[in-house]
Design a protein around this nucleic acid. Structure first.
Lengths: 153, 153
DNA sequence: TTATTAGTTCTGCAATTCCCGAACTGTTTT
DNA sequence: AAAACAGTTCGGGAATTGCAGAACTAATAA
């Protein structure tokens, strides 16, 4: 693969990641900026470099970067004697990824439980089904715990 | 808890579920309709009953129901000699829920791998971090497989 | 055949989201 | 003190999404 081809593919991948993240609830520009920081070989971008690379306005960049930082997707560092921020992806390790999944599943299980507790007939078809899901979900969460213990060291 | 209170709480829960699902990318009306089908004691709603309960237009109901069905969140049945559709939540069992999670994680791991394969320097900080995540993710997926085997019978 | 039922599709308005340019803030350099 | 730098905030236009009303379709009933 030629160098220029590789770079071309990186750019396509950024766009792909952007669309993927949009589906996950990121705003378009934020998704693509995160893509940029993930795929390019350059691993620290300044504000201006991001603007240049993505051809976006300062305000869009500012909003997107703030948003990504809030989500914990990126972080920035500074170098003494240099006022610029250097942005990079903040790699949560796998356990943090798992924790995120856990939180989502817990929220889901929680809703199930609330629904069940408000059912008039706890033996109705839906009640039973909901209980099964809720039970399965809790078992699954215990498995996740195991996973983290196995993995966490 | 009085009956009227319970019903009041069910309505609030529908709204809560609606907001929750909105964050998951559902459109407002669709989220609330799904909430309705989840929490109420009545477990099969016709088109008109949904319109009545949610105070929405036919077109909104039509769009929302189509959307929910496409996602696999609801289904409908018909009774012979009755032209109406009876909508209800389609309870995927826990394994289907897990499969959904798996699919999402696979898509994520896939992106990681594509990013890695396009890196110029496979030993750069980001490359290493990405490999760790990708590796951890794959281990996690194997655990999920185990879970399904343990659970699926 | 006409009317009714059970929805679907088609505008079009309203609200929301997205993003830009311009003005602004706070810090550092000249 | 003025200019430059590194962003942030504000206001508004464009695009998108969400929803309603009305017209439409296909099937059944009268």
């Amino acid at each position: 693969m030629k160098e220029s081809e590789r770079i071309e593919m990186q750019k396509e991948l950024i766009e792909y990641i952007g669309r993927y993240l949009e589906k996950q609830g990121y705003q378009p520009v934020a998704g693509r900026v995160l893509g940029l920081l993930m795929v390019m070989d350059k691993e620290e971008y300044t504000f201006d470099e991001i603007i240049l690379a993505m051809k976006i306005s300062k305000s869009s960049a500012s909003a997107a970067l703030k948003n990504l930082e809030l989500r914990g997707a990126i972080e920035y560092i500074t170098y003494t004697g240099d006022r610029k921020r250097y942005f990079r992806i903040s790699f949560s390790d796998i356990n943090i990824v798992i924790e995120g999944i856990e939180r989502k599943i817990k929220a889901y299980a929680d809703i199930m439980d609330r629904v069940i507790s408000l059912k008039k007939n706890p033996n109705s078809k839906n009640s039973i089904l909901l209980k099964n899901i809720s039970g399965g979900t809790k078992f699954f969460l215990s498995q996740l715990e195991d996973f983290r213990n196995k993995n966490h060291k």
